[in-house]
């Protein structure tokens, strides 16, 4: 790929990023940071190239080191995002039901 095609992809992606991120609800800004952390570790692609190259040497070790660091981020980032997102709940249906039942018992005073 020539430089201009790569640059085009980059600039377009910046615009996509701009609009997508503005649509993220502020309540999810912490998960947003955690998941962007995880995906920016796609840098592991470069680390794998170095780690798998022929003639394993200093470059290979650096690559493997980067594989370890990026893996911490990938697994940790996605897992912690998943953990956080699982906590976001709407008002429970059962709770609203009991509330409704209680209101009915009250004779609808509220």
């Amino acid at each position: 790929m020539d430089f201009i095609s790569i640059l085009s992809i980059f600039v377009m992606a910046c615009f996509v990023g701009y609009y997508v991120v503005w649509s993220v609800t502020p309540a999810l800004h912490t998960p947003l940071m955690a998941v962007t952390n995880a995906i920016s570790s796609v840098i592991i692609v470069g680390a794998l190239v170095a780690g798998a190259a022929k003639g394993f040497g200093a470059s290979g070790w650096l690559g493997l080191g980067a594989v370890v660091l990026a893996s911490v981020n990938i697994f940790g980032g996605f897992a912690v995002t998943e953990r956080m997102l699982a906590m976001y709940k709407k008002k429970e249906k059962s709770a609203t039901k009991t509330a409704a039942a209680a209101a009915a018992k009250d004779g609808g005073n509220h």
Partner: peptide
């Protein structure tokens, strides 16, 4: 590395931050 996935991700994360 001329890698599309890294460029798109980098741009997304960069704009996000």
């Amino acid at each position: 590395l001329h890698n599309t996935a890294m460029i798109i991700t980098g741009a997304l994360v960069g704009s996000s931050g």
